[in-house]
Amino acid sequence: MLASLPRSLPSRIIYGLYVALFFLYLLAPLVVVATFAFNDSVFPSLPWKGFTLDWFISAGDNGRLGLFYDKPLLESVGISLMVATAVTLLSLAVGVSNAFLFERHDFPFKGFFYMLMLMPLVIPGVILGISILVFSNSIVNALDNLFLYEAEFLRPGLLLVVLGQFSFITTMATLVISARLRKFNVELEEAALNLGAGRLTAVRTVTLPFLKPALIGAGAVAFLMSFENFNTTLMLVGSDAPLTITMYDRLREGSTPVINAVSLFLMVLSAALALMSMLSGRKAPE
């Protein structure tokens, strides 16, 4: 079967129907979540009782608390934004450094270290989470035993969440930035050096601007991966819960359509970031 070959009508109809059904399957859950954010009912389920914006803007006076007034939910959005920003900046910084290390330099056991660098992507997120939990706890105990020092900041909490997400998002950032750096013509940098620029100046004014599309793309993906991460976060979270953890708790309790409202917000955010990462990849000059 090919586009260029004639096919019998029934086979075309059946195949077309299958593809249509598949995309219905792909889109149905997303459409349903978005639609029910506007249902005039306290449950995110049938029957459809009419259109309302209560789940966004109701202040609680009619027994309904909309997204913009739901304090715990808004707080967890704030926490997620904070965590995602920290993870993005950290992983981009280390990602750039790693990219230069692996693309520009030769050193002993380079192949081995490269394999090691890829590891975080093949370790299940839950296990990354518990291993960091166990290790930070060991450090806390050791500090306590040796110096009688209570390292509270290494207890489950936002620092550990940031570190846990950073541990695997950095691999992704490194891969994206390396791919771009590989296309860079080193002669441009050498030209800058010949014209009297220092090494760092050359990298800052010539190489880094060239990497910008990759930095934007990797940054968008890193932000999104952090914002949406659940598995690693679940194991490392303390009393301040990022959005995914709060949403999970609400889902288990059986929540009002405010969860649909926040999901819709997440979808819009993802769409914006996806667009950003795709456009940054497409516009990149070779």
Binding site: P29, V33, A274
Partner: peptide, 14 residues
């Protein structure tokens, strides 16, 4: 691109 939590929630509604 959409959070796994949102996707799963969609299936719960369905």
């Amino acid at each position: 691109w959409v959070s796994e939590l949102v996707r799963t929630f969609g299936w719960m509604i369905l």
